[in-house]
Simulated assay, not measured.
Amino acid sequence: MKKLILGMAIVASALVFGQKEDVNAKLQVANKAAMDAYSAKNYTVAGPKFLEVYNLLKTNGQDDKTYMYYGGLSYALANNNEEAIKIYKELINSGYTGVQTTYTAKDNKTGQVNPYDKSTWELLKKSSPKEFSDFKTEQSPNVEPDLYETLSTLLLNTKKHDEAIAIIEKGLAKYPNNAKLKELQGTALYASGNTDKFMQNLKEQLAKNPNDATNWYNLGVLQSKNPATTNDAIASFQKALELGSADPKLSNNAYQNLVYTAIGDDAKAVEEINALRKTKPDDATKLIEARKERFNKALPYAEKWYQANPTSLDAVSTLKDIYNITKNPTKAAEMKAKEAELSAKAK
């Protein structure tokens, strides 16, 4: 992006050609102030200065929204989300894409390469081949996908989830293969509480890219909320670990979720057991055995969690409790000592 910004100084001189002297002077001052502020990462100053350039040009008949775009970008980088959102919305609604063609030619007398408007460039090329050479055109890239991505992110950052979903859907209608918008769509759907659509979104993304560890992890989290898809959740977490083992945070979270998914809602299970102990002891015994089975299933995940993160108090405490319930007092005592050690260090 900075490369594009620096290139704007040349374009500006071409745009102001032919304007009144006082307008030219104001434009050059505002443009330089905007460029300098952006280069110095003083985005709070750069934003309004780029808009000043845009408004000066517009007042004089040149509606070049490139400067509005850089103003919006600067506001976003300055964390002025509300101003950035307004600008990005206007740019999208106007159909701005950023695609522009720059026309340049070399003055053979001076050796300097200068920009020209299309008509002048074509005239020089046709009538002055001896005075000018190296006639070139360069097209700037399409920034419309970036507009949708940035606006969606800004809306999510300001908790405007429904607006974000609408913008993302609009963007995906134009750019259906945009991976960033697909990712943001999942985030927006989850944040808005629409978990069914979020799960569908994750599955669609995984169908296109089955090696995305984060999406496998997120799918596992959703599946773990439903007891009927516990096994699916475990498979998803295992896939996330297989693909994302190099990410310590993902590994820690995936092992932790594997343990809790395998155990299920233990508080509810204990409550049901206690309610049946006196009136239906046989049923209570069945529930106790089923609970032990779940903890035995969770044990290897808990051990791997501890191996992956031996300084995690949560991992140690959970493993201690599982050893107690699965009747392994030696290991339980070992984890109890480790728990005390980590707790003392944490104080």
Rank of each mutant, 00 (worst) to 15 (best):
I5L: 09
L313M: 07
A213V: 04
N79H: 11
N157Q: 15
A346F: 02
S245W: 07
A337R: 00
D266C: 01
S133P: 04
E272H: 00
Q307V: 01
G171N: 14
K136P: 03
K20V: 01
S140D: 10
Q100Y: 12
K182T: 03
Y38K: 10
N114L: 10
I234D: 02
Q28M: 15
K304G: 02
I273C: 03
D321C: 00
E334Q: 15
K249E: 14
G264T: 03
E204G: 05
N42R: 15
N274E: 12
M8Y: 09
S94K: 10
K65F: 05
R291N: 04
D64L: 11
T101G: 00
D314N: 14
I5M: 08
P129C: 06
K170P: 00
F135M: 04
I10M: 08
Y217R: 11
K268N: 05
L241S: 06
E341Q: 14
F17Q: 15
N79F: 07
T279M: 00
S312C: 06
D282E: 12
D247S: 03
K345I: 03
I263M: 09
L219F: 06
G47M: 08
K286H: 06
L155I: 06
K2R: 10
T137S: 06
A340M: 10
I168P: 03
D63N: 15
K225Y: 09
Q223R: 09
M1D: 06
T120R: 13
P310E: 02
D321V: 01
S128Q: 15
I288N: 04
P210I: 03
N142S: 07
D63F: 11
A166R: 14
I263T: 01
Q185K: 15
K239R: 14
A269I: 00
V221N: 14
A37F: 11
S39P: 01
S312D: 13
Y67A: 08
S312I: 01
K225P: 02
L206P: 01
Q185R: 15
K225W: 08
